[in-house]
């Protein structure tokens, strides 16, 4: 009950946040990315964290949603909401096929097989013509029931809604029969099977929920950016980013993935836009022409992925249970 209250309070704060910060497309854009990654990591967590099935191929479901939506809108001028529903169907079909292959495997094999399936999806989208192939799909204008989709506001609330739904599902799973079964599967598959738990059924159930939510986020992303190609929505990097967010935040917990996104997405954006280097130079703490100044302004901009790598390594070494695990220990 307390957790539901927390979700409600946070959702309430998030809902009024745009009104407080006012018209700032840049900040709203970053917040949309935070909400999207929080929801993606939470959706992944249902399969990876609760059932212990570490999928390295979640980009496939994100891409399935994004591609289905964009194809239906651009070719058939279908309503974005209906296209999104179609995206869920496609993602679930891919999930069922994937599940029937990868759930027979364990450990390393499961992770590698999920990568292979996602790569097959990516290469297919790249090679077929109806997906726009290497050129991707570009939409110039989208509207829904007369609402202007050029504005960021609908997407902010859309992402927030999906996040709240995902967290709600995650929370209710924790105390439900399915949730207990998934945890039993995570702890010991053989023991779970000997207790009479239908492994395939519950694993697939978790995968379907996770894939459907991920696909909705893919659809939202596609209509928000209005351009997709395989490197933007089907790349292995996206799958890895999702897992990193969940693990660095705290895998298997309700709030870990959200915390991961709240910390990592703004950090990545700060590194990308080099605000730290710029701020140091602008504050006059470092001279622009000095060696350090030039390094901060020129080289640090090239090094943001490097910094991201270092943070990953440090987190895995020193916070193996994620940031939430560290907080939990201190209590």
């Amino acid at each position: 009950m307390k957790q539901i209250a927390i979700i409600a309070v946070i959702a309430g704060i998030a809902a009024v946040l745009p009104l407080v910060i006012g018209e700032s497309p840049y900040f709203t854009g970053v917040l949309i990315s935070v909400l999207m990654m929080a929801a993606l990591a939470s959706a992944w967590n249902i399969l990876g964290g609760y059932a212990g099935q570490y999928s390295f191929g979640h980009a496939a479901y994100f891409g399935a949603g994004a591609y289905t939506t964009m194809i239906l809108i651009s070719k058939f001028n279908l309503n974005p909401i209906l296209s999104m529903v179609a995206g869920i169907v496609v993602a679930c079909i891919i999930a069922l096929v994937t599940g029937s292959i990868v759930f027979r495997l364990r450990g390393h094999y499961f992770g590698l097989a999920s990568i292979a399936v996602a790569e097959i999806v990516r290469l297919s989208a790249l090679n077929f013509d109806f997906t726009g192939g290497a050129q991707g799909i570009l939409l110039t204008d989208v509207s829904l029931w007369g609402v202007d989709l050029n504005s960021k506001t609908p997407f902010y609330y859309g992402m927030l809604l999906v996040l709240v739904v995902t967290l709600g599902i995650a929370l209710s799973l924790r105390t439900s029969k399915t949730g207990y079964y998934l945890q039993a599967i995570r702890e010991d598959q053989d023991a779970a099977a000997s207790l009479g738990i239908n492994l395939a059924f519950y694993k697939n159930k978790a995968l379907l929920i996770s894939a459907a939510l991920t696909s909705v986020l893919g659809s939202l992303y596609a209509v928000y950016i209005r351009f997709i190609d395989t490197s933007a929505v089907l790349d292995l990097r996206l799958s890895i980013e999702i897992i990193l967010t969940a693990i660095i935040g705290g895998v298997g917990t309700v709030w870990g993935p959200v915390l991961g996104a709240v910390l990592l997405v703004p950090l990545a954006e700060m590194l990308r836009s080099n605000v730290i280097g710029d701020a140091l130079v602008k504050q006059g703490m470092v001279s622009e022409t000095s060696g350090l100044g030039v390094f901060l302004k020129e080289n640090l901009a090239h090094a943001h992925v490097l910094v991201y790598g270092i943070i990953t390594v440090l987190c895995i070494l020193y916070l193996p249970k994620g940031i939430l695990g560290l907080l939990g220990r201190k209590k």
Partner: peptide, 12 residues
């Protein structure tokens, strides 16, 4: 998965 992520980080 932690081992995998560590090697991914080292690779980056």
């Amino acid at each position: 998965q932690n081992q995998i992520l560590l090697t991914i980080g080292l690779g980056l």
